[in-house]
Amino acid sequence: MNIFRLLGDLSHLLAIIILLLKIWNSRSCAGISGRSQFLFAIVFTARYLDLFFTFISLYNTVMKIVFLATSYGTLYLMYIKFKATYDSNHDTFRIEFLILPAIALALLINEEFTVIEILWTFSIYLESVAILPQLFMVSKTGEAESITSHYLFALGSYRALYILNWIYRWFLTEKLNAIAIVAGIVQTILYCDFFYLYLTKVLKGKKLQLPA
């Protein structure tokens, strides 16, 4: 464990908590893409199956349980409890165009052709594009609440911090996973235009307006 990975995991946890609090306190999931949240739940489910038979550390196990519980909790809030506030008209990104290529790629490019490793690789590929429905929705609605942009900033920062963690581990000549690194770079690049808008607008108190 190093400071970059710890900050990355905490940033990820912060993003999930910001989202849960936003939905719970405002009793609304307006502006939030349920499809992205659905993809995140798939990512965690496919990646954390080793929860039951590989013990890395207490931290690792606890965080996996927290991420699984909060992602399904978010789905519950969005699709059941506050279903009436879910903006399905703007949440229309075709997620099958993300899931199917991720499955195909995981079958073609992986470290080990076993079920658990293929699922892990699938979750890595899917996570790198899972935010697209949310970014698409923000561009379609043309704007996002500031709380949603804080959520996106924390979520985008998590994988950016993981890149620093991989650089740090590279200097320590630790074993790295090229698949996770390439996917992590792609994932972070997808946030770049949002990061620019967030740093130049939201932090100056303006609303986040994405060019439609």
Binding site: I56, M63, K64, E112, E117, N165
Partner: peptide
């Protein structure tokens, strides 16, 4: 023995 790939990151 094929060394099992272990992913220690979240």
């Amino acid at each position: 023995q094929s060394f099992k790939v272990v992913h220690d990151e979240l």
